[in-house]
Amino acid sequence: MKITTYISPLLEQNMYIVGEDRHCIVIDPYYDENVAVLLENKIVDLILLTHEHYDHISGVNKFKEMYGCKLLANSKCNYNLQRPTKNFSKYFEAYYEFQSDLKKPDFDFDNNYSCSADEIFEESITFKWQNNTVFIKVVPGHSAGGNFIFFDENTLFSGDILLDESVPAAKFPGGNQKAFIDVALPYINTLPPDIVVYPGHGDSFSLQEYYGYIE
């Protein structure tokens, strides 16, 4: 299994292409001409999302159009995907204006962006893909529709629930600091310390590196 990271211009968000031979699953899609080159001669089997915020979902509709692939998402995520005020596309440009340290991309945002899942699950789902076991579990805290995506128990795509610098703020609408502390952190501490975490922003790290902060 090969993991390719593509850093998008939207808040330097990580899109991941998980590949086996010519087949791939795309996590948190962004689309431009550079991504098209990366996916040349590839078969996109599925789109997965770590959560519903615009910087992590902006490529969903384009991927569906270009590759004929389906989106699998949990029901809370799917509800927010269809609402620009919930997926934050409505406020994305304003966010850049209030964050003077961020460089705004030189293209227009779709401030009325929406998309929807083709297949929906509730709290968790497990399935096989190219001889890999994929397990997705809803994990609260950063957003209402956030989840962890595991491949074969040793690789975790955490979105913005776990980042390499600190526990991400739950101050955005849909975030819940109490749920993060009471539900997410106890679950995180049950995971093997050598699991490799691929976050929504920044570099990958082992969970062991994170334990000193979250315990």
Results as ranks from 00 to 15, higher is better:
residue 55 D to A: 12
residue 119 E to I: 13
residue 200 G to P: 05
residue 156 L to M: 12
residue 135 F to C: 03
residue 211 Y to C: 03
residue 22 R to E: 15
residue 198 Y to W: 08
residue 110 D to G: 12
residue 85 T to I: 15
residue 19 G to D: 09
residue 98 F to M: 14
residue 67 Y to G: 04
residue 168 P to T: 07
residue 124 S to G: 02
residue 102 L to H: 04
residue 205 F to K: 04
residue 55 D to F: 12
residue 117 A to S: 11
residue 95 Y to Q: 08
residue 177 Q to W: 13
residue 155 T to V: 15
residue 169 A to E: 14
residue 170 A to I: 07
residue 203 D to S: 08
residue 152 D to V: 09
residue 47 I to L: 15
residue 187 Y to W: 10
residue 23 H to I: 05
residue 170 A to L: 07
residue 29 P to N: 12
residue 91 Y to G: 09
residue 9 P to H: 00
residue 156 L to N: 01
residue 214 I to R: 03
residue 142 H to P: 03
residue 59 G to A: 12
residue 184 A to D: 00
residue 90 K to W: 13
residue 4 T to V: 07
residue 92 F to V: 15
residue 175 G to H: 07
residue 62 K to F: 12
residue 55 D to P: 10
residue 187 Y to E: 06
residue 206 S to T: 15
residue 27 I to V: 13
residue 113 Y to M: 07
residue 165 E to M: 10
residue 21 D to Q: 15
residue 92 F to N: 02
residue 6 Y to F: 14
residue 130 Q to N: 14
residue 151 F to V: 14
residue 137 K to T: 05
residue 93 E to V: 04
residue 62 K to R: 14
residue 105 P to V: 09
residue 105 P to A: 10
residue 110 D to L: 07
residue 179 A to P: 00
residue 65 E to P: 01
residue 81 L to R: 01
residue 206 S to A: 07
residue 131 N to I: 01
residue 119 E to P: 11
residue 200 G to E: 02
residue 68 G to S: 11
residue 64 K to A: 14
residue 66 M to H: 13
residue 96 Y to C: 06
residue 12 E to Q: 12
residue 146 G to L: 02
residue 135 F to T: 06
residue 182 D to Y: 03
residue 60 V to Y: 07
residue 132 N to R: 09
residue 121 F to P: 00
residue 52 E to R: 08
residue 117 A to N: 01
residue 4 T to I: 12
residue 57 I to L: 13
residue 136 I to M: 08
residue 54 Y to T: 06
residue 64 K to H: 12
residue 190 T to C: 05
residue 2 K to P: 01
residue 148 F to C: 01
residue 153 E to Y: 13
residue 125 I to F: 00
residue 88 F to M: 15
residue 21 D to M: 09
residue 157 F to V: 04
residue 14 N to V: 00
residue 203 D to V: 06
residue 115 C to I: 06
residue 31 Y to G: 03
residue 56 H to F: 11
residue 147 N to R: 06
residue 88 F to I: 10
residue 190 T to F: 02
residue 201 H to S: 06
residue 179 A to Q: 08
residue 169 A to L: 15
residue 195 I to E: 03
residue 20 E to V: 14
residue 141 G to L: 02
residue 105 P to S: 09
